[in-house]
Design a protein around this nucleic acid. Structure first.
Lengths: 334, 334
DNA sequence: CTGAAAGCGCTTACAG
DNA sequence: CTGAAAGCGCTTACAG
């Protein structure tokens, strides 16, 4: 009950066995004789022994943690993903460290340091803006790309963004829209590019024009969505429907639209991407493409653990599916 | 360049000194002669040596990590707080582990395990629902309570919730409202209770009645806010203004209100709590009480590091201030 | 089935 | 100012 933590030595003394036997009882009980095992377990109980992970991991040459590296931890988008990761990892007794790539001056350098530091057995990367060269660290642990991926052959969990765009455009086209525009994510973002490309292809597939004038550049943020509303309102050649690369932008758009006296879906139909919680509570409630974020976190953690365990990550291949959620922000064109 | 990580031995050999000297050069350079120091630094450069934290920490009898323990990691409320913590911690070379209390069957037991595990040098607790008894672990590391606090004398970072309620009621009263109601957080939540109590006192201070009929029970969620809208609309004795214990509930309320053909602030004035990002983009934009979440994270991390370093946490006492942000969801009563 | 011993990679009194 | 040595708390071949 005093300050000094209980060690395996204390347990060994208490049980009248060697530390080796205590260790075995705890990690491979099957090789220990039953009476010995019971004596050890009793001593563990009595002393309140808890393994020292530092020592165990140093000896086992692993850290027992993985790092999730996100471009912006303050972005709520990640919270559900982290929850999914945490669930899988803690069930397997791994710790989850989180870090932000964009906090210092040189994000690439940060990644490189994390990879070289030996602080974790693996890393899940959520920042598609980093340079693939930053991965070129000798002896680095496994890395999984999630959500946004680098232009490399990194094992990855990928969402079917192209299909999401297809679902959005299909929904709008079925309602009768032919002038369907797109509000993009940041230009440098791979995910944003895939959604834009998906929009273009979905339009082409239907013989619909995808005019440059119908593309509004955003950066995923609500503010950029509000800006898009201004530009949309001011445009002469105006789409009757818009597919947004993120819900946040669609939310900003709807707010600004209303402040300007316009309204969805009367004046323009709106489809978002993500299905964040607020979608259902807006008025009009936002039609969107649902991304299963908890699942993404679970799959990313699962894949990483598989790689750490020496697996090839098979069984984790394949895209994470998205689905259309129809609400009230879409209607036939006026 | 091969697989084996570079150790302090390799650097020592390269520099022609002992490992002790390499270690000193890295952690207390002032005690090493300049030429020696330079030779070591050159060797570090050449070999690409990175300290093994596991070994260093085992030797130093610390872990170099702290744990943030939240009731629900999927709640975006925490993302900004975690970002604030991460900023402070990584500047001081501490890792941030995150874990969820509510994932297993017994949250108290989870907390106890984390405290006894020696996995971290300290812990920040965001779950006010846990039993103080769970803290009763011999030799446990320092714990900081943040956001929601237990009924103990734990060092804590606390937001001035009572003052937030006062600001909200003052604003509404100045607009001329006398029938000001409150939508609560979950009954068991300390933070929710403080806000409710604050509302009650702010009303009393003005000689305003705080009728039970004007209290609508919620749980912080958007859904519960939407439910409050139904109940508000159906009530015979209806407040003309509502102070919500969370923005999320206010968002849900506004959406449901509109779907029922009513509108804020025409039919009812609405004040939220938190200032989440969407507030500014709603229509009407939501008047609310701003909570500086990044600051909360920074302060919590700072306080914990101080305690870990043997400080008494003085200088971190005092409440985190909140402020009123007036937007368009409040107006004089009709 | 069990124990003695080596060793994971570091840091730090201690001695010189 | 520097080095030899002990030791942080474990695990695991190895020998018996």
């Amino acid at each position: 009950m005093n300050g000094r933590p209980v060690t395996i030595q204390d347990v060994a003394r208490e049980a009248g066995v060697s530390t080796a036997t205590v260790s075995r009882t705890l990690s491979k009980p099957s090789v220990v004789a039953k009476p010995t095992r019971q004596a050890v377990m009793r001593a563990v109980q009595k002393t309140g022994y808890q393994v020292n992970h530092l020592a165990r991991n140093l000896r086992r040459q692993r850290t027992g943690s993985v790092i999730a590296l996100a471009p912006n931890l303050a972005n709520p988008f990640f919270s559900q993903i982290l929850a999914g990761m945490s669930a899988v990892l803690s069930a397997r007794n791994y710790g989850l460290l989180i870090a932000d790539t964009q906090m210092g001056p040189d994000p690439d350098e940060r990644l490189r340091r994390y990879l070289a530091s030996g602080m974790a057995d693996g890393l899940v990367l959520f920042d598609g803006g980093l340079s693939p060269a930053a991965l070129d660290v000798p002896g680095r642990p496994p890395v999984v790309a999630a959500c946004e991926w680098l232009a490399t052959d990194l094992p990855s969990i990928r969402v079917d963004n192209a299909h999401g765009a297809e679902l959005a455009v299909a929904h709008l086209a079925e309602l009768g829209h032919r002038r369907i525009g797109h509000v993009t994510g940041p230009r440098s973002n791979v995910l944003a590019r895939t959604r834009k490309q998906g929009w273009r292809e979905a339009m082409a597939r239907r013989g619909l024009e995808a005019r440059d004038a119908w593309v509004f550049e955003g950066d995923f943020s609500m503010d950029s969505g509000a800006l898009a509303a201004e530009r949309w309102a001011a445009a002469s050649d105006r789409p009757t429907a818009l597919f947004f690369a993120s819900d946040e932008m669609a939310v900003g758009f709807l707010g600004a639209l209303r402040r300007n006296g316009a309204q969805a879906p009367r004046d323009v139909s709106v489809v978002g991407f993500d299905n964040i919680e607020v979608c259902a509570h807006l008025s009009p409630a936002l039609t969107t493409i649902r991304q299963p974020r908890t699942l993404i976190g679970e799959r990313a953690a699962g894949l990483l653990l598989d790689l750490i365990g020496g697996g090839g990550g098979e069984g984790f291949a394949g895209l994470v599916e998205v689905e259309l959620v129809v609400r009230d922000s879409t209607a036939p064109p006026a």
